[in-house]
Amino acid sequence: MIKQFLKHKCNSKIKLFIAVICMFALVMSVSGCGNGNSGSDNTNSTQSTVATYKVNRGEFDWSGNEYTSVLPNQKEWNVSQYLVDDSRKCCSVIIDNSDLESTKQYVKSLEKTGVSTVKSQVTDDKKNPIFNYLGESDSYDISISYTGGITTISITKTK
């Protein structure tokens, strides 16, 4: 009796875990899909939020918006996705072909432009290195994270 109860309990947990994974995959696939036209801008607007989503590979213009125009451009990186949200005064850029060293070098180039480091943390695990960085300038806060070949840069306007 107890054996059957434990077996049923474990199966329920496994089913719940699989359901959560499937739900996460569904949400990610829906949020990553546009209208089938990968070259178009999708602008979603509500009463309080206007955000522009662009999912394109290599077509991001670093000087094309007020957030990334203040940052150095890492030419060998391919931008896979970006989000500009003017109502929240922020921009996020996802680079999918980066490595830990190029991300560290990018942070050094930021510091040369006057960005000061608030906090920096690196885990040099050979299999899965992780890098997190927080910086600030006179009018922007910058967050950079690297893991698994993906670098994410988030810029928030403070003034």
Rank of each mutant, 00 (worst) to 15 (best):
I2E: 13
I2A: 10
I2K: 13
Q4Y: 14
L6Q: 07
L6I: 14
K7S: 10
K7C: 04
H8D: 08
K9Y: 13
C10A: 13
C10L: 14
C10D: 12
C10P: 01
N11C: 08
S12I: 04
S12Y: 08
K13Y: 07
K15A: 14
K15T: 06
L16V: 03
F17S: 14
F17E: 08
F17M: 12
V20S: 05
V20G: 01
V20P: 00
C22A: 11
F24Q: 13
F24L: 11
A25W: 07
M28R: 09
M28L: 13
M28E: 10
S31P: 00
G32P: 01
C33M: 08
C33S: 08
N35R: 11
N35F: 12
G36F: 14
G39D: 11
G39Y: 04
S40H: 08
D41E: 03
N42D: 12
T43Y: 04
T46S: 15
T46M: 09
T46P: 01
Q47C: 07
Q47R: 08
Q47K: 12
S48T: 06
T49V: 11
T49R: 06
T49A: 01
V50N: 10
A51Q: 09
T52Q: 04
K54P: 03
V55D: 07
V55S: 11
V55H: 09
V55W: 05
R57Y: 07
E59S: 13
E59M: 10
F60L: 07
F60Q: 08
D61A: 14
D61I: 14
S63D: 10
S63W: 00
G64E: 00
N65L: 07
N65T: 04
Y67L: 00
Y67D: 00
S69N: 08
V70A: 14
V70N: 07
V70W: 00
P72N: 06
N73I: 00
N73D: 13
K75E: 10
W77M: 03
W77I: 04
W77V: 03
N78V: 13
S80L: 05
Q81N: 06
Q81P: 00
Y82N: 15
V84S: 01
V84D: 00
D85R: 00
R88L: 04
K89G: 01
C90L: 15
C90D: 06
C91L: 04
I94T: 09
I95F: 01
D96T: 11
N97L: 09
D99E: 00
D99K: 01
S102I: 05
Q105K: 14
Q105A: 15
Y106F: 14
K108E: 15
S109N: 13
E111S: 06
K112A: 12
V115Y: 05
S116R: 06
V118E: 10
V118I: 06
K119H: 11
S120Y: 09
S120H: 10
Q121R: 08
Q121F: 09
T123A: 02
T123S: 04
D125H: 12
D125V: 12
K126S: 13
K126Y: 10
K127N: 10
N128L: 15
N128A: 15
P129C: 10
F131V: 07
G135V: 03
S137C: 05
S137D: 06
D138K: 14
S139C: 13
Y140L: 12
Y140M: 14
Y140K: 12
D141I: 01
I142L: 05
I144Q: 05
S145I: 02
T147G: 14
G148A: 15
G149T: 12
I150A: 06
T151Y: 03
T152I: 11
T158L: 03
K159I: 02
K159Y: 01
